[in-house]
Design a protein around this nucleic acid. Sequence first.
DNA 1: ATCAAATACTACTAAAAGGTAGAATTAAAA
DNA 2: TTTTAATTCTACCTTTTAGTAGTATTTGAT
Lengths: 138, 138
Amino acid sequence: MQLLNSSQYAIRILSYIANNREKSLYNAKELAEILSIPYKFLTKIMTDLVKAEFIISIRGRDGGYKLSKPASDVTVIEILDIFNEFVNYEQCVLGIGKCDGEHKCAMHDRWIEPKNLIQKMFEETTLENLEGRDFKLC
Amino acid sequence: MQLLNSSQYAIRILSYIANNREKSLYNAKELAEILSIPYKFLTKIMTDLVKAEFIISIRGRDGGYKLSKPASDVTVIEILDIFNEFVNYEQCVLGIGKCDGEHKCAMHDRWIEPKNLIQKMFEETTLENLEGRDFKLC
DNA sequence: ATCAAATACTACTAAAAGGTAGAATTAAAA
DNA sequence: TTTTAATTCTACCTTTTAGTAGTATTTGAT
Ligand code: SF4
Ligand code: SF4
């Protein structure tokens, strides 16, 4: 019951960039150091973020990465979707196919409330909401 | 962001047995069929449940499995613990070590409420609470 | 033009989770 | 005592996730 490493890293990267607007570009080397993320793994994730159009990359010398849109336009659930997490809201918590709301699995009545709350939170939380000073970075 | 297959199977197996008390013993073959769980994987999980003392097994011909204690004494969180899920309540949602409540990660203030709700639910839900007719079994 | 510093691509390795195969063990029943 | 039906053990295979290595490509600066 936890997020994929890729999702955790992506949220940390995007929220760090959103939170530090003084620089216009961040490169992979400094992001890897500041956030303590393995460099090679980070570059792979950055490419995913570029392909998903959350990040714009500038190649070549003095290149780097920046957000492609305002922080208020990026929700956490969209970030999770990149790595195929939480995509299927109708997935049964006990893995018995999809929930049609009619045939319930044993956990349903207990699960549905926390499920809806966590889903709502991921949907409504944007990078802008994740701003603030003194966050743990690594 | 989902439970391990092993955890899902274990909950389904235990709640099925708790819910059907007419028989005193259930064997692996029938459980695998009724719950549509791969037989060989199910027997592996049953051995885990026996070692964790949630299940008593009777070996040999006409053997099988039964609960080792009343359904009201088995919480879902204990089942998850068997597979090392949700064991560490202090794990950071963004994977940055443990949360000491002082140094917060970017998600903290948004995460803490749904986290507490889901944790409370898993702690307070027992096999007895999972009883009812007409649940989806597979 | 060349160099240097950056991203992108291809391919591989390692670890964890999910699942399978077959033999060994147990114990009731015939 | 033999057979049979059950659990348990050991070992393996497959898939997914996590991470690494090396090369190619891009582009500003010299
Ligand atoms: S019961 Fe709850 S979990 Fe199971 S299927 Fe319906 S919604 Fe999904
Ligand atoms: S912030 Fe929330 S998640 Fe991150 S560490 Fe503290 S509690 Fe855990």
